[in-house]
Computed example of a mutant assay.
Amino acid sequence: MNQPSKQREKIMAELRSISHLFDEALPIPGTPYRIGIDPLLGLLPAVGDYLGAIVSGYIVVQAARMGASKQTLSRMVGNIIWDAFVGTVPLFGDVVDVAWKANTKNIKLLEKHLSEPHRVQKTDWWFLGFLLGGLALVIFIISAIGFWILRAFFHSFN
């Protein structure tokens, strides 16, 4: 669905706010770097990754509604999968999550795509469903692997 310009700007402002909250809301004192609540949520085993993926998935759905191409949507989901995959590695994943900022990357991809009006397309809802279903499956598998690793780690002490 191609929204009128005012509605599109309202949605983009909302997506930018969400991205900022999850990727850059909090300054790190004494540095030029900022973090959001996404890496903090990542400290919660499994639940944090799911919450982050749901919010990131919402951004992808809105991008589809605004006419993002299959290629742009695929790249956006790829950023989320990479973020979730690396996030399963304890501590290292959280450090990478601070730098990767998948939501910020996805907003930039969407803005670039939308800046070229001839590229705005009608949403292929089957493709979007396939992408989001694949994302959910990957997040589930990553969580299961993370759970298995934690279980093996704690069993090594018994």
Rank of each mutant, 00 (worst) to 15 (best):
L41R: 06
G36F: 03
P45A: 07
P29G: 11
S17C: 13
S56C: 06
T31D: 00
I59V: 10
I37A: 03
V47S: 06
L41N: 13
S69I: 12
S19D: 02
E24Q: 14
K70D: 15
I37M: 01
A53W: 04
Y33V: 14
A46F: 07
R16Y: 01
L51A: 00
E14C: 14
R16T: 12
G42E: 01
K70A: 14
A25K: 00
Q62T: 08
T31P: 02
V61L: 07
P32T: 15
G36P: 08
Y58F: 04
V47R: 02
S69F: 14
H20N: 10
G36C: 02
L44K: 01
A63H: 00
L26K: 06
G48R: 05
A53I: 05
P45K: 08
P32N: 15
D38P: 09
G52C: 04
I35V: 14
I54R: 08
L44D: 09
S69E: 11
G30V: 03
D23Q: 02
D38E: 04
D49L: 05
H20P: 05
G52R: 02
A46P: 03
E24S: 13
I59N: 05
P27R: 10
P27E: 08
L40A: 02
L26A: 12
A53M: 05
Y50E: 13
S56M: 11
L40R: 03
I35M: 09
Q62C: 06
A46L: 11
I37R: 10
M66A: 10
A68F: 11
T31I: 00
E14A: 15
I37C: 07
V47K: 01
E14M: 13
I35H: 01
L40S: 00
G52H: 04
D49C: 05
G52D: 11
P39C: 04
I54N: 06
S69K: 12
R65C: 07
P27D: 15
P29Q: 15
T31A: 12
S17H: 13
L44I: 09
A46N: 05
V61D: 15
L41C: 04
R65E: 11
L44N: 02
A63D: 04
L41W: 00
L26W: 04
I37F: 10
P45G: 01
L21D: 07
V47P: 05
Y33I: 14
I18S: 05
L40W: 00
I54M: 00
L41G: 09
I28K: 03
